[in-house]
């Protein structure tokens, strides 16, 4: 089937088929754009001859932190694929997402090795240690995981942009390019998730709003609890990247809500209703234990 046909084929939109058809079209559009505008090669599209020699250790340490988080790709990909496997568009997106994310760890590893800031032994020892833990799904349903993915990709995009600026300040053109390429992928992923959530909002606004409120309230970045020395690593990143609560609100939370067409007041209403419902049940605990929100001071 040609892409044009795929994008244009009229599909009878009834119930489950309608959802499948819309997800398929979203994915077809995402994939087509990615093929046309966003493909890159870790070995050919980074100016490796422009790796700076004297850069602050924090710059490399942050690159290593990203590598740590990206290293759990086997867990992210397998969980992601399983949770959405019944929806074609989302499953194929998950496969494509895994391919793109695989380049992120690859290019970061190449940077650490080519720059001479880490040896092969150090990199593979670290990887071995990382694989001692496993990332688990933070939320139980496909819709919640889509919302989680949206906040997480948007946050990651912002953090990579901050690090791109840091690399530029340090005169490391290679690392600046790497962060730019990765950031571009992350924002494309966030946009796909946003488009999927918009479909969910159309089909079930109250339920989707409840999920958005719940995920936002219990959100934490994927490295928490599994990357060794995570808190110390994030402290270094915050020092250099100026990621704090206000940045989270300004660059992640508000933009996502705006794109989704969701008012802050709607979520407040949902959270209040949830509290009242739990109080009526004798203060039953929320679905997940409260966790610190991204961007809040550690």
């Amino acid at each position: 089937m040609s892409l044009d046909l795929a994008l244009g084929t009229p599909v009878r939109e009834v119930g489950e088929t309608a959802l499948q058809a819309r997800m398929y079209r979203l994915y077809a559009g995402f994939f087509d754009k990615a093929e046309r505008e966003r493909r890159w090669n870790p070995f050919r599209d980074v100016p490796w001859d422009k790796v700076a020699e004297d850069v602050p250790e924090a710059l490399c340490y942050n690159a290593e932190t990203f590598l740590c988080v990206e290293a759990y790709l086997p867990d992210y990909a397998s969980n992601h694929l399983q949770v959405v496997r019944e929806v074609f568009g989302q499953t194929w997106f998950a496969a494509n997402w895994a391919y793109e994310e695989s380049k992120h760890s690859l290019v970061l590893m190449e940077y650490l090795l080519r720059s001479g800031r880490r040896s092969q032994e150090q990199v593979f020892d670290l990887h071995q240690r990382l694989m001692g833990a496993r990332w688990q799904l933070p939320f139980p349903t496909p819709r919640m995981m889509t919302i989680y993915g949206c906040f997480q990709e948007q946050a990651t995009f912002v953090i990579y942009c901050k690090q791109e600026a840091f690399a530029q300040k340090c005169g490391d053109e290679a690392l600046r390019t790497i962060f730019r390429l990765i950031a571009r992928d992350e924002i494309a992923h966030a946009r796909f998730y946003e488009d999927v959530i918009r479909v969910h909002l159309e089909l079930d606004r109250p339920g989707t709003l409840r999920d958005i409120a719940h995920v936002a309230k219990h959100f934490q970045m994927p490295g928490v609890g599994i990357v060794p020395d995570y808190d110390a690593r994030i402290a270094v990143m915050r020092d250099e990247g100026e990621i704090d609560r206000d940045v989270f609100l300004q660059k992640v939370y508000f933009p996502v809500l705006k794109y989704l067409g969701v008012e802050r007041a709607e979520l407040v209403r949902v959270l209040a209703e949830d509290r009242r419902a739990r109080a009526a049940l004798g203060n039953a605990p929320p679905l997940a234990p409260p966790l610190p929100a991204l961007g809040d001071p550690a």
Partner: peptide, 12 residues
């Protein structure tokens, strides 16, 4: 009170 809880308070 974290940032999202603060937004709830503001909304209320």
């Amino acid at each position: 009170i974290d940032s999202l809880a603060m937004l709830e308070i503001v909304g209320a």
